[in-house]
Design a protein around this nucleic acid. Structure first.
Lengths: 385, 385
DNA sequence: GCCATTTACTTTTGCGGCGGAAGAATCCAC
DNA sequence: GTGGATTCTTCCGCCGCAAAAGTAAATGGC
């Protein structure tokens, strides 16, 4: 509550130390000196104000106490993860999912509420109410992040969100005036990508790609530790990635596009069209695993499409890691072999194997992503990515 | 001749000034201060030793003298392009192409010689002879760059070059001991990419892609101003980029791969297989333009493949610019419309249009690319990319 | 048990490089 | 010619770093 909008004016050196400790766990001064290429003296100088301000703390000793080396033991520094709380919200068509996280972006509480109206003021009211409820249990709130599917500008205004039927809604301002807290609004995929870049699968990588599969396809490219923004972000993304020109035609997607082959609604549509019966995504995966012909065919084709997609990304972007996330990556568990085989035939035999991580994410993970944006703003002291 | 292996020990600030002027033409101190985000005072300090050492020079006035603004006129600084010469060689199966360039990488002389043997020592002899001949007319030689198709390690050793039948040939050392000059050896595509990044189409961009079409397919990715190296570089690249699984099968390529659809040998093969007659690449392009059915069909399919390839690169890498280079980009002049149309259907309508530049390159352009490596080493003072 | 050794951190000192402010240079406008 | 505009230079002060020396806290050998 006492917190300002951001940490005390941090110098560039102090900020780099703070981020390194925040992202890469407890680190001794010597280790920090090595990583940041600074002298030991500089580390004493830089860490002192950070410790005095209560941001960092000296923790007993890392990991195995048995692992005792000669010489004076190192003194790991860590962020005081509980010193601040952050709120993250993910707004879907009919629900608002909320989480409280620590400075480390660990989720300490969840709280969801149905969304009964899309009126911007009512949505802001609901978010403010949820904030008040969550604040009661988790004080020291430093900021709020909100993830929305659709186009978001300046990290504050929802330029266009088809499923909410919003255009030019200044959501950050609406929530700020109700809560008095700094609010960051961002596209949900972008938020998830930032979260994974700072605290997840993308930590420490220079070239990193996130591909999400769910109601739609999401793509995030991180180069040099920064996410690359692009114009068509989350506005029917992947509908023009034609993977198989002879693939199935689906209502919204082009024929054989990534959207028509991989997204949950379109996989359900294909199975419904073929069998005449409606199934959930999970049911379809189970049926395919059990060898049911039509679902197996659809899932098999989806697996091939995913393999091709990952191969293309790996071939052209040369990322050090690719993260598959979203609600639809359960596909991997059923069609993993097809994905792998397809991937291999579309890669050069001498090419480095693709470092592919899969992470089924639920809506709270998306909300956590939004909370990370609030963390970034606090640490970096600005709204810029 | 007096030159050491690199410029006087340049401080980081001085080096950034030198590179900025070298790459972006004559610039005034004020302009440099703006670009490098430095104070005017710093620019006086940084430029003084560079001018005194003869590296930079104050040039009269840029461009239009009529364009006179108020106030003290700016004093553009430029590199003394002729102060040093650089040699670039491109080694092909049966020829060695050589160029002399200025510090700005402008070609001031060309000199080619047939290659009658692939024995490494004889090749080094030939390069040394050509160096001697070229040095007679162009003294002040500061370094030599050599481009070779194949795998090159440490910018000095040819690890594997199928067409020369070389393995682990320390070409840089062989030429260095014959000429006494610093020698850089690099994969030819990599050299071309570096050249375009510093002095060509990629100048000033953060994300930049080079795609070459010729005897094979070459791919270069530049991120943050630096080329990204990768394992499968120039060892049958593009054979596993399957663009059309129903495409033609060709001797070396997989079915429907970028290699089988786009490279000059494979286009000639397809036409020969279809018509029974052998044509040069240029003849095939002319026949296709004239409406001859079989060549037109092959070229049309190549155009579609190129459009898809460029779209995939644009979709996944989000480059600010893509350069098409190589001997085979004449394709664009005949199949430009097909390429454009295909590109458009594989791109999101809201996506920024692809900035696509085409540049037919001959072997001297490849040699120039190699010379740029020698320039980089002189300026940066190291072998590192 | 004591001291050498090792490793981690702190303190002190000095200096390079930068920004900021003031001044000099050189043009245009009237 | 005077004033304003713009570029560049000079000078000063300071921030931030490295280097080096000193302190702290552990282990290991005897």
């Amino acid at each position: 509550m006492t917190a300002g909008a951001s940490w005390l004016p941090l110098s560039a050196g102090e900020r780099s130390v703070a981020i390194e400790v925040l992202v890469h766990g407890p680190l001794s001064r010597t280790e920090l000196a090595r990583r940041l290429d600074l002298s030991p003296g500089s580390l004493t100088r830089l860490t002192k104000p950070l410790i005095e301000s209560g941001l960092l703390i000296e923790v007993p000793e890392a990991g195995s106490p048995a692992e005792a080396r000669q010489g004076r033991p190192s003194q790991p520094l860590d962020v005081v993860a509980e010193s601040r709380s952050f709120l993250g919200f993910k707004i879907t068509e009919d629900m608002v999912y909320g989480v409280v996280t620590t400075l480390r972006s660990d989720i300490v509480a969840r709280h969801d509420r149905p969304l009964t109206t899309h009126d911007p003021d009512r949505v802001a009211d609901l978010v403010a109410e949820m904030t008040a409820e969550l604040t009661r249990l988790h004080p020291r709130l430093a900021g709020i992040g909100i993830g929305v599917g659709g186009l978001v500008r300046d990290r504050s205004v929802v330029g266009e969100s088809p499923f909410l039927n919003w255009r030019e809604v200044p959501l950050a301002a609406l929530v700020e005036e109700r809560t008095g807290l700094p609010v960051i609004v961002e596209n949900d995929v972008a938020a998830l990508v930032e979260a994974e870049t700072w605290f997840g699968a993308g930590r420490g990588y220079d070239r990193f790609v996130v591909l999400t599969i769910g109601a739609g396809i999401g793509y995030g490219l991180v180069l040099g530790g920064k996410r690359v923004p692009y114009a068509e972000e989350d506005r029917g993304f992947g509908r023009h990635w034609i993977i198989n020109p002879n693939g199935p035609l689906t209502p919204e997607g082009e024929r054989g596009s990534a959207v028509s082959l991989l997204t949950i609604p379109n996989i359900r549509y294909q199975v419904r069209a073929a069998t005449g019966r409606d199934h959930t995504y999970e049911e379809i995966l189970a049926l395919a695993a059990a060898g049911e012909p039509m679902p197996a065919r659809v899932i098999d084709e989806a697996g091939r499409a995913l393999g091709i997609l990952v191969a293309q990304i790996a071939n052209f972007v040369l990322p050090q890691k690719i993260l598959l996330a979203g609600e639809g990556v359960g596909l991997i568990e059923v069609a993993g072999k097809v994905v792998d085989d397809t991937l291999r035939t579309h890669r050069h035999p001498l090419a480095a194997p693709v470092d592919l991580e899969t992470k089924v994410s639920d809506f709270h993970d998306w909300a956590r992503g939004a909370a990370v944006l609030a963390i970034q703003v606090l640490v970096l002291g600005s709204v810029e990515a």
